[in-house]
């Protein structure tokens, strides 16, 4: 019944046997113990569970772990490198882009992916790019400012 999968998460390849119906988000949270990825709606509407799969932002509650077999996944825990925050993480901290923090990992992952596609998004483009992610606390304005901050930081990098 269980199926063997080989998934690289945050730079480490893991081989695990999983139930075919196991959701990717539960694989990350319950099998690997990476609880930074959150579940907010189970219907792929809130975006709290956003991770990147082979560089694409994916809502990990809409994907089975077996579908991720052979892929490279980055979760919020893998975004900072060598203790240095990703510019989007930095932006969220600098610009008060979070309050309760529950949507934040998914929001940050989606924003990081947005900046991969578009290094200098306008405010409208940021809002459009984050449309798949709900935040109930901030009212989004500080999130937009956080992504603007990150965008400037990314563009300063060589």
């Amino acid at each position: 019944m269980k199926k063997a999968v080989q998934i690289n998460v945050n730079g480490t390849t893991r081989e695990t046997e999983v139930e075919p119906r196991l959701l990717l988000v539960h694989y990350l949270r319950d099998v690997l113990g990476l609880t930074g990825t959150h579940v907010g709606c189970e219907t792929s509407l809130c975006g709290a569970c956003t991770v990147t799969v082979d560089g694409q932002a994916v809502k990990s509650c809409t994907m089975f772990a077996v579908q991720a077999d052979g892929s490279n996944i980055t979760t919020i825990e893998g975004l900072a490198h060598d203790g240095e925050l990703h510019p989007v993480q930095e932006g969220f901290w600098e610009r008060h882009g979070l309050q309760c923090g529950y949507c934040t990992p998914g929001m940050i992952m989606a924003a990081a992916q947005l900046l991969e596609r578009n290094h200098a998004p306008t405010r409208e483009e940021i809002r459009h790019g984050l449309e798949g992610n709900l935040c109930r606390c901030t009212g989004y304005q500080h999130i937009v400012e956080a992504v603007e901050y990150a965008s400037k930081a990314v563009n300063r990098e060589p």
Binding site: R29, L34, T35, G36, F92, W93, E94, H96, P105
Partner: peptide, 21 residues
């Protein structure tokens, strides 16, 4: 002043109820 809560939250290292095992 930047929030002291934030580092754990932006790194995905905070613990909500479902994160307690």
């Amino acid at each position: 002043v930047k929030r002291t809560e934030d580092p754990r939250l932006i790194k995905g290292l905070a613990h909500y109820v479902d994160d307690i095992r």
